[in-house]
Design a protein around this nucleic acid. Structure first.
Lengths: 156, 156
DNA sequence: TTACTAATGAAAATGATTTTCATTTTCTCT
DNA sequence: AGAGAAAATGAAAATCATTTTCATTAGTAA
C-alpha cells in the first residue's frame, strides 16, 4: 500500500474518532504493510515484538472500530475466526475471496469485476425492496481447500 | 419439504452411515420441517420438548455429519454461529443469502439464478487453476440489516 | 439373543471474542 | 507547560459457540 494512501486513511480515522492513540497508529501501520487478511491474534503477535504493552483486547476493539468506520473489511471465516484487511484505494479494487475451509487462509481475487458488478447491482436493487432489507455490503466467496491443506488432507 | 423428498434424503443418509439412530432421525425431521436456517442451539431447543435425552453435543455431531455427506448446507454467520439448512431437491433450487449482521437472521433468495450460474461457472474454472485451489462450494451473500434490526438500531 | 463397536451424553476443555473495572493517556482549556 | 475530564487501555474474568474425552448405551449383523 502506498504511503500516500496510508496517510489518507489515518487522516480520515483521526477525524472520526475522539482520540488518536499509539495502539491505533501501530495497528493501522501493520494493516497497511500487508495485503493479507489478518486475524486479531496475528496482529497481536506481530505487535508483540515491538510493543509488548499493547493488549489483545485493544486489538479487537481497534479492529472493530476501524471496521465500523468502513476502513477495514471484516471476513468471517468458516474456521471460526474473523480476519481483517484494510480497504484499498478507490472502488476499482473491489475484490472477493477464496477461503480455505481447513486453515482459514483467504486469497483475494478480482477477476470478472465487470460482469460481477452488473449482476450484483441488479440483484441488490431487487432484493433490498423485496425483503425490506438494508444492504450494506456483499460477498462472493468460493470455499474449498488451498494447495497446502489439500495435500495434508490426503495424508491423513 | 414434501414427505417424498425427506424419505429420499433419509435413505441416502442411511446408506452412507454405519448406524441409523433416533437422534439422527429426529434431527433430520426438524430440518425437513422448516425452510429456515437453524443454529445447533435452535435445533436443540426444538428437540428438547419431545426428546430431552438428546444432547447438544449430538446435535453438533449430527449436523457436521449431514454436512459432510452433502445433505445439509452450513452457513457461517457474522454473528458468530453456524446455521444449517437441508439442501432442497435437485440443483434447480440453488440459492443464496441475505444475512443480518445484527441478529444473524438469514433470508434465502434465488433470483437471477441463470445469470449467476454463468458468472460463477466461469469464475470457478479460472480461479481453481490460477490459485491451485480445490473449490467445493460458493456463496453469494448480501450483508445488512433486516427490517426488525433496522428499527431497533434507530432507537438506540 | 449375543457380541461388537459405533454412537451417544455429560462434563470438561478449548478458543475466539467481549465485558468489567481500575489505571493510564490524550486532548482541551488555562 | 500544566491540570482536569473523559476516552482509551490492559489484565483478568466472563461469555459463548463448538470440540474433546470417556464411560455408557444402543444399533446391527450373525
Amino acid at each position: 500500500m502506498p504511503q500516500r494512501h496510508q496517510h489518507q486513511v489515518r487522516r480520515r480515522l483521526r477525524d472520526n474518532v475522539s482520540r488518536w492513540t499509539q495502539p491505533r497508529d501501530v495497528i493501522l501501520d501493520i494493516l497497511a504493510r500487508t495485503k493479507k487478511h489478518l486475524s486479531a491474534k496475528e496482529i497481536y503477535d506481530t505487535l508483540y515484538s515491538t510493543h509488548p504493552g499493547i493488549g489483545l483486547t485493544t486489538v479487537y476493539r481497534t479492529l472493530e472500530l476501524f471496521h465500523r468506520l468502513g476502513v477495514v473489511q471484516k471476513v468471517t471465516s468458516p474456521d471460526g475466526q474473523s480476519r481483517y484487511q484494510l480497504r484499498s484505494e478507490g472502488s476499482q479494487e473491489h475484490h472477493h475471496h477464496l477461503i480455505c475451509i481447513r486453515c482459514g487462509k483467504i486469497i483475494d481475487y478480482q477477476d470478472f469485476a465487470e460482469e460481477e458488478l452488473k449482476l450484483v447491482g441488479k440483484t441488490e436493487q431487487v432484493l433490498s425492496q423485496k425483503h425490506n432489507f438494508l444492504i450494506l455490503d456483499h460477498n462472493i466467496e468460493f470455499l474449498g481447500l488451498c494447495e497446502k491443506c489439500r495435500k495434508e488432507t490426503q495424508k491423513s
